[in-house]
């Protein structure tokens, strides 16, 4: 972009310095966490940041002595199903708002939008009673069913579906294509990027659930990883920092990898949803 004008050397050094400084502050909690996960707890509690016994033994302890792998598996199951069904339900309702004409559509859409104003956190009390009466407590289903759809997802996909050339619908109607086929054959493939974005978003949102699972799960067989870490931390009466940091690392490394791979979709999709 600025081929002709090279900024003066001092400015370049300033830029690099700023970059390094910012990177340092972002990285320091990671680095400390990972580093201490390699140290023996005895050395950490003395306040030492260096040890002659660097090893992966904290990881071994975390995997063998705690249900951390089970927690990860639970989270994976919960997040995966929430994501899959959310994609289906949100895309269906978004389709209805764009391609099906019916009385009161706009009103209904505004009602959908209005739910974005209602935080789930403010409704946990009756929702707890509902899932208890449905017999869902302490089960995967309790962490999936209330989140099968989302107003945000519907809104985002609606914006994406509106980008689909109307001529396509006209043509398909002349061809006698049913809503189902148009939805499955045209609309979904056309909005792949937005669907991927919503998938990533809903997967992460489900993965990060904290309050709801804490209230509705009571055993390690169903407890997701966020509450699992809380559990590990509260059981620890000795400051076993090495093991705790290792568990945190076990949890964060897979998500970091997934994120760096899926970064591109996430970014472009979210911007689309944001701007239009």
């Amino acid at each position: 972009m600025n081929k002709n004008i090279t900024p003066p050397i001092t400015q370049r050094i300033g830029q690099i310095f700023l970059l390094l400084l910012l990177a340092f502050f972002i990285l320091i909690p990671f680095l400390l966490g990972f580093w201490t996960s390699l140290l023996p707890t005895a050395d950490i509690s003395k306040g030492a940041l260096w040890s002659s016994h660097i090893s992966l033994s904290n990881y071994y302890t975390a995997i063998t002595q705690t249900p951390i792998i089970r927690y990860l598996f639970n989270s994976l199951v919960i997040s995966f199903f929430t994501m899959a069904v959310q994609l289906l339900f949100c895309s269906m309702s978004a389709y209805a708002f764009v391609f099906i004409e019916f009385k009161g559509r706009d009103t209904l859409f505004y009602i959908f939008l209005a739910t974005m104003m209602l935080p789930f956190e403010a409704e946990v009390i009756p929702n707890f009673v509902t899932v208890r009466n449905m017999g869902l407590l302490n089960h995967y289903a309790v962490m999936i069913i209330p989140f099968l759809t989302s107003a945000f997802g519907t809104f985002m996909l609606r914006q994406a579906f509106m980008q689909i050339p109307k001529e396509l619908r006209e043509a398909s109607e002349i061809e006698g294509l049913s809503h189902w086929r148009f939805y499955a054959k045209v609309v979904l493939p056309y909005s792949r990027i937005s669907l991927f974005t919503l998938a990533a978003y809903s997967f992460l949102a489900s993965w990060n659930q904290y309050l709801w699972p804490m209230l509705t799960t009571f055993s390690d067989s169903f407890r997701p990883v966020q509450d699992g870490l809380r559990q590990l931390q509260s059981q620890e009466t000795f400051n076993n920092w090495g093991m705790i940091q290792a568990s945190a690392a076990i949890v964060v490394i897979p998500t970091l990898i997934v994120l760096f791979i899926g970064q591109h979709y996430f970014k472009s999709g979210l911007n689309e949803g944001a701007v239009k």
């Binding site: 966490g33 201490t36 306040g47 993965w207 870490l229 920092w241 949890v251 970091l256």
Partner: peptide, 26 residues
């Protein structure tokens, strides 16, 4: 890549990282 890194960090992991930094004795 580094700047976007904290996106993969969930609440409980972040809490553990920072609890360690703010810990009064270590």
């Amino acid at each position: 890549t580094i700047f976007s890194g904290t996106m993969g960090v969930s609440v409980s992991v972040a809490a553990i990282f920072w609890l360690f930094i703010f810990n009064p004795s270590v």
